[in-house]
């Protein structure tokens, strides 16, 4: 009796295992198919960035290029100045990240670690800024910057990007500071540190993980920002990638290869940064989302 039971159990278990394995294969195919949907447009972009119109319009829309035309890239760099836009984006984004981290960490230090009456009110007011759509600021900033002759300068983007990056950054820093023991400040004060030294020498180094989070979050939002950029910048030497690409598309209209090359040059740096730091990037996005 026992033998029969255990055998039927065995068969049962094997059947179950079998089902699980098939289930896993189906699941893998499903996940891979969706991965293809997410990634294929990018692959297709890279492929057509090496083709010329005769090839694309001659029927080879989706396949590998017959000749790998690096000349498209030469043209995107030489004539369409994509590298200039890339440089401008780097300048604007780096400056924004620097100012956001500096200002937000200072404000968060005062809010999270120092004792004053309006600390909580200030925090709530700053955090409310996360709910304000940038639309509200577009026209007023345009008019003010026009009057101050700031249009078509890097400051026209760095200032608003910094301002709109501050609310999330402050709240990420404040909640991180709560996890740093307060005894540290006391010990530092006893050692003879003044308040500025406590910020700079004790707290700032400990904030490093939060700084990485804020840096990545700010990078993604300012690198890709379009509305302010197309409004405040229309002179070539100051165009960032999104604006530059928009005008490149306007002049190249039907030259798919060159446009594709421009798009690839604009995309590859972000993809590389992302692939190198993917876990950190994903963590930053989650932190930013949960704060928002």
């Amino acid at each position: 009796m026992d033998g029969v039971k255990s055998r039927s159990n065995n068969i049962n278990r094997r059947g179950k295992k079998h089902r699980v394995r098939i289930g896993n294969i189906v699941l893998m195919i499903f996940l891979s198919l969706y991965a293809l949907i997410q990634i294929y447009p990018l692959v297709w972009l890279i492929l057509f960035s090496f083709k010329n119109n005769t090839e694309i319009f001659g029927g080879n829309v989706a396949g590998l290029p017959k000749v790998w035309r690096w000349s498209n890239y030469e043209s995107a760099i030489r004539q369409a100045n994509v590298l200039l836009y890339l440089r401008n984006s780097v300048i604007v984004t780096a400056a924004t990240i620097f100012f956001v981290i500096m200002l937000a960490s200072m404000a968060a230090f005062a809010i999270g670690r120092m004792k004053w009456k309006l600390s909580n009110t200030t925090y709530i007011l700053i955090a409310l800024g996360m709910m304000v759509p940038i639309h509200a600021a577009l026209l007023p900033l345009f008019i003010v910057m026009k009057n101050l002759n700031l249009l078509n300068t890097f400051w026209a983007l760095i200032i608003p990007y910094t301002a709109f990056g501050l609310p999330v950054a402050v709240s990420i820093f404040v909640s991180f500071m709560k996890s740093i023991p307060r005894e540290l400040d006391e010990a530092a004060a006893i050692e003879g540190c003044n308040i500025y030294q406590i910020y700079y020498k004790v707290i700032l180094p400990l904030l490093r993980p939060a700084i990485a989070t804020v840096a990545i979050f700010t990078f993604i939002s300012s690198w890709n920002e379009l509305m302010f950029a197309i409004t405040f910048i229309n002179k070539k030497p100051f165009k960032t990638l999104p604006v530059g690409i928009m005008s490149m598309v306007g002049t190249y209209v039907t030259k798919w290869g060159e446009i594709g090359a421009g798009l690839v040059i604009a995309t590859i740096p972000t993809i590389i940064v992302y692939l190198l730091l993917s876990d950190q990037v994903q963590k930053s996005i989650i932190a930013g989302a949960i704060k928002g």
Binding site: Q38, I39, L42, L45, I220, W223, N224, L226, L241, P242, I245, M246, L263, A266, T267, T270, I271, Y274, S278, V281, Q282, I285
Partner: peptide
């Protein structure tokens, strides 16, 4: 997650 980090213009 790759499309999320790509620029909307691209």
């Amino acid at each position: 997650f790759i499309p999320v980090i790509m620029s909307t213009v691209v």
